[in-house]
Structure formats: C-alpha cells, structure tokens
C-alpha cells in the first residue's frame, strides 16, 4: 500500500473523495496504477456486498489515473473532463479488498476513450467494467 503522496503524484492531486473511500495506489502494473480500497461499511451496499456506486467510483478514479499517467508523458498540462461513464456489473463484490486498473484505448485530439475494470481475488474475473469518454483541452487555449 502506498501513500497519499504517491497517489497525488499520479493524479496530479489527492481528491478528498478518494481519501474518504480509503483509495490508495496498491501497485503499478505496466506503468499504470492499480487503485484499491478495503471492504468496510463505507463501501457496503446490500449487507455483505460491495455497493455498485462505490466500485464505480473506484474504477472512475482508476480510469482518470490511467489517463493522467498516459497524457502526462506527452502533454502534462492537458485538462481532462469526464463526459460520460457506462458501467457493467458482472459479479457481486464480496467482503474483500477491491482493485481497479484503467486502460487508455485511444487518445485523440479532443477525446480520450478509457476503460477500467475492477476485481477482487482474480484479475481474470472482473466484478465490473467501465467505459468512459473524456474531453481533452489545453489550458493554453483561450
């Protein structure tokens, strides 16, 4: 488990919401951060299961983090704005630590398409996946 500082370095900031949910950078995989949180009442939906919104929030942060890391290489100052998110729920999340990893499918001039998945014990058995579209803008444009 890594510190807030490392997460802040990756995201460009440490969102209070991510801290509130207990999210940390668990490890790096292929140059991209695996974000994780532990199970607890703060992420519980129906008793004994992870809340769909909580796992969505985790995957969204993983998607943003993956995009940040990817664009940072070329254009560190670029601004990213989420346009939409589509979440597919595949398995009930149980009382276990949950991981999420984003992957940038494509970065165009104005739009980035990013996917992320969440899993618990086995990365090959995702509990949920997301597709996100982001609008990209340069802060230099006025």
């Amino acid at each position: 488990m890594t510190t807030d500082t490392e997460m802040a370095a990756i995201l460009g900031f440490m969102p209070p919401f991510a801290r509130e949910m207990g999210m940390t950078v668990d490890h790096m995989q292929g140059g991209l951060p695996v974000i994780a949180f532990d199970y607890g009442p703060h992420v519980m939906g129906r008793p004994g299961f992870l809340h769909g919104g909580a796992m969505s929030g985790l995957m969204e942060i993983a998607a943003i983090a993956a995009l940040r890391v990817t664009v940072a290489a070329e254009e560190p100052a670029v601004r990213i704005k989420p346009v939409n998110i589509t979440i597919n729920f595949m398995r009930g999340g149980r009382e276990a630590r949950t991981y999420a990893l984003g992957e940038v499918t494509r970065i165009g001039r104005r739009v980035a398409n990013v996917e992320a998945k969440a899993w618990q014990d086995d990365p090959a058995k995702p509990i949920a996946t997301v597709f996100m579209n982001f609008l990209l803008s340069s802060p230099k444009q006025v």
């Binding site: 900031f13 969102p15 209070p16 919401f17 991510a18 801290r19 509130e20 949910m21 809340h51 769909g52 919104g53 909580a54 969505s56 929030g57 985790l58 969204e60 942060i61 989420p82 998110i85 979440i87």
Partner: peptide, 24 residues
C-alpha cells in the same frame, strides 16, 4: 461536503458520489 470533493481547485464534488446517488 468537503470530503466528497473531486477537484480541489474548484471544490466540485467527485462524480463517484453522483453515480452512487443515482444507483440508489
């Protein structure tokens, strides 16, 4: 609530809590 903030520069809350709100 400040603890729901996603963008510290603007104070806008993260979108995660909005997903949770709409799911519920």
């Amino acid at each position: 609530a400040e603890r729901l903030i996603g963008d510290v520069e603007t104070g806008v809350i993260a979108s995660g809590p909005i997903i949770s709100l709409m799911d519920n």
